[in-house]
Amino acid sequence: MQTKLTINAQAHTLEADTRTTLLDALRFHLGLTGTKKGCDHGQCGACTVLINGRRINSCLTLACMHDGDEITTIEGLGTPEAMSTLQRAFVEQDGFQCGYCTPGQICSATAMLDEIKAGWPSHVSDDLLADPDLSDIEIGERMSGNLCRCSAYPNIVDAIRDAAGTDSA
């Protein structure tokens, strides 16, 4: 089955079996191996990418369902020479150990900060209608879909808080 995808602002035509998840399409058909496979069942967040700006688990969606969609992966957020604010903050704060969960963490955090800007509440927000703050508890809750086997959580939270600060400054 043929599917047209725009990935990191580049048009791609994918020819693949209907069973192909978006994750497998990225890694095995298009050679974009920045996106990682952890559990393949929506339980770890390693495969997080952005579809039309929103974070999703690419292991739990079919590539063929995304004909015409715009996908951003870690490769599209920045490069080693020109890192995004969050990518730089993860390096500066040492927000990883093995690095396996990192692409998912950074894609997830990128969209998460947009959700906060849009005023979305979270499970730990006291007031559903107030503008959310960026406390460590809020960051932890909003990032709970991204597990880190190395437990680099404290530094991940620091990196996200830093990036958000830089962003709004």
Binding site: R55, A111, E115, P121, S122, L128, L129, S144, N146
Partner: peptide, 23 residues
């Protein structure tokens, strides 16, 4: 929903993860 049906907003926010709720 947040204003008039907060029990629903709360239940949704207590479920799954940010990524999963987007799908």
């Amino acid at each position: 929903v947040r204003r008039d049906y907060p029990v629903l907003a709360r239940a949704l926010l207590a479920g799954a993860s940010g990524q999963l709720r987007n799908k």
